[in-house]
Design a protein around this nucleic acid. Structure first.
Lengths: 214, 214, 214, 214
DNA sequence: TATGAATGAGTGTTCATTCAT
DNA sequence: AATGAATGAACACTCATTCAT
């Protein structure tokens, strides 16, 4: 009896890589189509597996979605927190840096798509929305709030409620995220470049926030 | 003589009131569930009629939605346009009035829910999105843009690109709309009153926009 | 108190005419669309009445259809029978006259449409089909058969089974009826004028039937 | 040891056989009920599968029907075309062979039912009618027309318009098809055997077509 | 007698989920 | 571990029929 040849399998065994690949495919599809409109078959096709395989790794569509979110949220925020802590210059500069980085680093990232998705369809997944808020929104907001407190304490910003102001600062960026991730061209009526938006927004708001602008 | 049975009629004739009732029910359901997740049968049930009745008054789901939008918009925007045209004071005041009215009159109104809905699901229903944009967003935006032009021309505002600035002004209000209409309370993390948000936003932005803030 | 004026009613009372009008409208619609595809609402609209009115006169769609057929079958056949009986010339001439008249007088008549309809959808109304056959097809066929017998007896036609031959003679006319009443132009591939069809058919068949064509 | 329960599997894997089975079930149902009245659920039930399964193999009802036609036609017509091309004898013989074969090979086949169906319901499904005409009727007709041209050119047939004559030749066979597939027995009034019909029809018509029958 | 608003059963189609292989 | 054939619940829309007015 001939020993079975150690043939290289036609497709490579990558037991461990599978889940990642599936999550990647799911992420892409969710971002592209939204949650409800994403068909698991398309996710499977995108990952190059069969529909059934998805169910070997994820209980159902909802769980898959949750995993996608969890897998893509981790690191990014932590960095920003550290940067902010070690910054030493004027608060306005810190603030604008933070907002700009937020935009540039998230927007290019899948996280941008997820944010849009959560804002859009979060209602249908209260549990998930809560999770997302706690892990992402709350931590991010706190960061901004702290900078505002710092600026007010140092007399750089006029006295405002830092929590409310945080929201005012976050809102435009989130909205830009939504606009950017909406692929209907008509919706972005007269074309406004995200960069121009961010610049105008930051300049104007910082001016409005300055303590010395009597 | 036996008392005549008090049989409840299978249906009641309500010819004139019907359309309004249906639109109201549809609006509520759309806002509550979103467009895609709204089943026409539920709308019907909510209005106390049968599924078929809806089709006596509206061609299909899409048309029903459009009617809902039309019935809740026309007046509102028109008024704002007229008010703006006849206003005579400083542009900053006009702008803040406009934004505040926008918020108060739309937010209290179900129209807020519709705006949220369009932002959320617009992607999946391009035709609806386009319709909404043309009828609502474009007209509203133009209003703001014109005020900005006016203020810049009169030297009240510093020179900014009025189109970009329009977006910057719109974004926070839209975002507030989204937050407000997301019924997961957790999402509104530290409770920020919409009024406080609007106030802080308007004051800050107008300060940042003023021409004389050297 | 003024005596109520004897005003002429806005619409004329024509109690007796109603059923006829309804039947006429139904006939037209059935012929135009076929049985299944005819919506009672369209019949009503065509007759200028409301949908409900139809149900005052006819139990349901099926009964309406039956009445339409019954009301349009009566007279025509009788005439032909009498003409044939009193004819005195050569049988070939009689036959061709009969076939041509059949075509010209039925084709223009609603009976043509009904024939097409019966052929098409008769399966779904076995009872009706039977009735139609007995009253129309059988009597008409018998007429032809008799002429064939006459011709054979007089030595004008070669000896054929007159019953079978009757079918052979009827078939093309019926088929022409079907083609003519099919309003999809494509189905009548290269356009063949009904008159040309009838002429070619009659000439060829009579030639084939002649006794002397040795 | 307990005998393993003989549970019947919810479904059986039949990958390769399935399409054929589905087509067969669909054919039967279509012929039995007609196109419009055939519910896909019944087709599925007949094939012993669920409704959804149909959609694994066929895009929709219309496509299913087209496939049924394709699966039952291609061969038949093709053969006839080849036979005709290679035939070398007198045109009358070719013609009668063609017509007879058409009858016997189609009539015995469910394809007869489909022809009946198209004649009956074609009006209501223009696209199907067109498809059927192009694929079946047009090709078949052309075959006959060519034979007629051949016969005329060779002096075997008297000069007639071959296109019109084609129709005259087709009509009786189609009509016979309709009669045969109408399952109301009454409709075939005095019992005429299809074979007798065909024989009488062919003999008579060929006699009428002969060039030498002075 | 006439109306037409209202009904609700029925069907084609989609897609998340299951399970024999 | 992986497949993909099979499932069946769900939903938009139609239309014959009913019935309060």
């Amino acid at each position: 009896m001939p020993a079975p040849q150690e043939t290289k399998p036609r497709w490579e065994r990558r037991k461990d890589a599978r889940p990642q690949e599936l999550l990647a495919a799911a992420l892409a599809q969710f971002v592209e189509r939204g949650y409800a409109a994403t068909r698991l078959e398309d996710v499977a096709k995108r990952a190059g597996v069969s529909k059934g395989t998805l169910y070997l790794y994820f209980t159902n569509k909802e769980e898959l979605f949750k995993e996608v979110v969890r897998a893509n949220i981790v690191a990014t925020i932590g960095e920003a927190e550290q940067d902010a802590a070690s910054f030493d210059g004027p608060s306005g500069e810190l603030l604008s840096t933070l907002l700009l980085r937020w935009w540039t680093e998230i927007w290019a990232t899948p996280l941008g798509g997820i944010t849009k998705l959560m804002l859009s369809e979060g209602n249908n997944f209260p549990e998930l929305a809560q999770f997302y808020n706690e892990e992402v929104v709350a931590r991010g907001s706190l960061l901004i709030t702290e900078v505002l407190r710092r600026g007010i304490a140092r007399g750089e910003f006029r006295p405002v409620d830092p929590v409310v102001m945080t929201r005012v600062l976050i809102a435009p960026v989130l909205m830009l995220m939504m606009w950017t991730h909406s692929y209907m061209p008509t919706c972005d009526m007269p074309d406004v470049a995200p960069e121009a938006f961010m610049e105008t927004f930051i300049i104007t708001t910082l001016r409005g926030l300055r303590a010395d602008s009597t």
